[in-house]
Each structure stands twice: as structure tokens, then as C-alpha cells.
């Protein structure tokens, strides 16, 4: 089975519209630098049109085509940095509705922000209880460190309830602060909360060396490889992943894609078609493949492989 441990709802209700517009501007800039006089408007329109899958139907259709049984749906809280972002409670309701619509296909990592104030942790815990959310999502480039002391009450909840924390690393949406992307910023929190598992989102793609040594030396730190279809690698992402999977931290690696970030050039079934014994998995033992593609992620959220079948649970 395959678990995609990092997907995002392709919806401009989840990703603020101005972030998508900035992404289109960056693509437009790149094309113009290569002498292609492509209009910014059409590129922006195409990107925005892709982000209209508010109920997750297109995502589930691609998961079905790719053989992905389950995905971790990641809902970052941008409400403190974008006037267009959904308020947290509404974001929670939207993701809970997607889970109800597609039973057994998603586990939600709900986004918090340390600026939520004293009511924030209780709200987080309530959503976990009410909606069955599986973990906590942090997006530090929104303006905080993952070791910010204001997050510690949240970590205490995660420790008590066995919830993993997925924290974004590396660059992010253009209007935000990339200086808060290095994986090492999670180190203090990981030391202070040894009972909480931290996953470095995109850690297998950016800041790879830093993320890898954290994984190697901190028992409660993991990384995912999401965003690999769009990574910068002269030799290509398949070769990069193959090397990473053969490194000594394979027990700390989660497969993930960051769908729909690459959706204008490729698709979930297309990228998964390279996960074969003569490409991404060359020299990677079958037991290690299973850990990367599913079992480590399931263990972090407390699921068993047998429990995860389409229609099985929310």
C-alpha cells in the first residue's frame, strides 16, 4: 500500500489567492528569462483554475489512479499573515467535510500558529477530538520558529495524545519569511519534547544534509520527501531519492508529494510510475520500501496497515 504523507487541498480557500499569484509571477519570470514571452495573466488563470478542488474529488481520483490508499491532508494556518486566509475554525470544518465526503482516504494535520493566544491550544485539542484530526501542522515561514515557547502548550497536548507534528522546512510561499525554514530550528523543541514525533516537511528535498543529520541523531525527528517532483536537482529527482533511500536514515523517511504543487507539469500516477526497482528503488530492500511508502507514516499516526483500506476510517 502507499500512503502519501503530505498533500494539500487544491483550493484557494486553503492556499491564499495572493500566494498563488506570487507563484504564477515566479513562473512567468522564469519563462521570460528563457526568452518565452508568455503572458502572466494566462499562467495565473491556469494556476487558479487548478485550485478549485474544494471537496477533494480530483485529489481522490488521482490517488485512485496512482494506487494511493491514504493521504495526510495538511492544512496550514495562514490566518495571521493573509487577509484572505480562512479563519482556523472554518479551515477545520472544510477539512472535516472533505474527510466525511471521502471516508478512509485522509488523515488531517491541522495548522496552528503560536499567535493564536491562550485559547489556541484548547481550540486545537477540541478539533482533534471533534474531527479526529491526526496531527499538528506548523508553517514557520508565516513568522515563528517551531521552537517558539508559545507552541509548548500545543506540544504538551501532542505528547499526551500521541499526535505527530509536521513542520514545514525550506522555502515556502513567496510573501513569507524563508529565514524561518531551516530544519535546525526544530531542534530545541525536539529535545524538550522527546515524546513528540516531529516530521520535517520537504526535509528530503531542501536542507537535505541538515534534515538528515537531525533524523540520524534525534530519535523523534523524521523527514518527508514531499515536493520532490519540482525539486532542483541536476541529476533528476529519481536519482536523488534513490540516494536518500539508500542512506542510513531510511527508517526516518516518509513518502509524500505535496500534491498539487507540481500539478501543472505532472501528476500523481506519473511520478509514482518511477518508484520501481530499476529507478527510485534500485538497491532499496523491499522491507525498506514498505517503511518509506507506508508503514512509518502509519505508525506515526497510530494506524495499522490492516486498518487502512478505502472506506475504512476517517
Amino acid at each position: 500500500m502507499i500512503v502519501d504523507s503530505h498533500v494539500v487541498l487544491a483550493s484557494d480557500r486553503v492556499i491564499p489567492r495572493e500566494y498563488l499569484e506570487e507563484q504564477a509571477t515566479n513562473m512567468h519570470h522564469r519563462l521570460r528569462a528563457h526568452g518565452r514571452d508568455v503572458g502572466l495573466g494566462p499562467v495565473t488563470d491556469r494556476l487558479l483554475a487548478l485550485h478549485s478542488d474544494h471537496d477533494g474529488d480530483r485529489l481522490v481520483a488521482e490517488m485512485d489512479s496512482a494506487g494511493v490508499s491514504l493521504a495526510f491532508l495538511v492544512a496550514a494556518d495562514f490566518s495571521h499573515v493573509s487577509p484572505r486566509a480562512l479563519p482556523p475554525a472554518e479551515l477545520a470544518r472544510l477539512h472535516a467535510a472533505v474527510c466525511r465526503r471521502h471516508p478512509g482516504r485522509f488523515r488531517v494535520f491541522w495548522g496552528v500558529d503560536p499567535r493564536a493566544g491562550p485559547d489556541g491550544p484548547a481550540l486545537f485539542e477540541r478539533h482533534v477530538t471533534d474531527h479526529g484530526f491526526a496531527g499538528m501542522k506548523l508553517y514557520p515561514p508565516a513568522g515563528y520558529s517551531p521552537s517558539d515557547r508559545r507552541l509548548y502548550p500545543y506540544y504538551e497536548i501532542c505528547a499526551a495524545r500521541g499526535l505527530p507534528v509536521l513542520t514545514h522546512t525550506g522555502p515556502g510561499w513567496a510573501p513569507l519569511d524563508f529565514t524561518l525554514g531551516p530544519p535546525l530550528l526544530v531542534d530545541q523543541a525536539a529535545r524538550d519534547f522527546p515524546g513528540v514525533d516531529f516530521v520535517l516537511g520537504h526535509g528530503g528535498v531542501t536542507h537535505v544534509e541538515e534534515a538528515s543529520y537531525l533524523c540520524a541523531h534525534r530519535p523523534n525527528v523524521y523527514l518527508d520527501v514531499s515536493q520532490f517532483p519540482a525539486m532542483l536537482a541536476a541529476e533528476g529527482w529519481a536519482e536523488h531519492l534513490n540516494r536518500l533511500f539508500r542512506s542510513g536514515i531510511s527508517h526516518k523517511i516518509l513518502f509524500g508529494t505535496c500534491w498539487p504543487s507540481f500539478r501543472m507539469s505532472t501528476s500523481l500516477p506519473a511520478v509514482l510510475s518511477a518508484f520501481t526497482p530499476d529507478a527510485v528503488f534500485a538497491g532499496v530492500r523491499p522491507s525498506v520500501q514498505k517503511m518509506i511508502m507506508a508503514t512509518t507514516a502509519l505508525r506515526l499516526v497510530g494506524d495499522s496497515v490492516a486498518a487502512v483500506t478505502p472506506g475504512g476510517h476517517q
Binding site: 518565452r36 499562467v43 488563470d45 488521482e62 505532472t266 506519473a270
Partner: peptide, 19 residues
Amino acid sequence: SHLEERTGKPFDFSTYMPG
């Protein structure tokens, strides 16, 4: 983008699964 320009029609990525 070139296709859209030449055909005058928008390319709908939401219904196309590139591979």
C-alpha cells in the same frame, strides 16, 4: 501557454492528468 495562444482556447489542467 503556446498552445493556448495559438488555438485561442484555454487549457484546462483540472481535467487533464499530465504524465
